[in-house]
């Protein structure tokens, strides 16, 4: 008789995975990071959030508490491979200090990442 663990493993479903971007966590005391159009090839900054609140583009309350840690979402403007993410990080490291990068994938065509408020 299968165990609960074996039953659970048997329910796993493989999904079609597509790499579509990167969330990059930048540390800076100089305010909201700014990136030039085309600065990072196929990676275009879609939004920046701080403590989960979107701070670019659009309205930012002057009262908003911000810390020196920004989530910058870079979406690919064309189909990309892993090595392009590595190249992107090398380029970005020349200007910015970052704490972590999280690849963004679609699973069976659905986003596997949350939006920012």
């Amino acid at each position: 008789m299968p165990t609960f663990t074996q039953d659970a493993i048997a329910t796993k479903k493989k999904k079609q995975i597509e790499l579509v971007g990167v969330d990059l966590y930048i540390i800076t005391d100089k305010g909201i990071p700014q990136f030039a159009d085309g600065e990072f090839g196929p990676f275009k900054c879609e939004f920046i959030s701080n403590r989960g609140t979107k701070v670019w583009p659009g309205f930012v309350s002057p009262d908003l508490l911000m810390v020196n840690w920004y989530r910058c979402r870079f979406m690919a403007t064309k189909p990309i491979k892993d090595h392009e993410v590595a190249d992107f990080l090398v380029q970005l490291s020349k200007k910015w200090e970052w704490s972590a990068a999280q690849k963004l994938w679609n699973y069976d065509g659905e986003a596997g990442y949350s939006k920012a408020y």
Partner: peptide, 13 residues
Amino acid sequence: EDSYAAIEHMVSD
């Protein structure tokens, strides 16, 4: 803040 910062990812399937 806390886990309400809306930072969630499917880090594998």
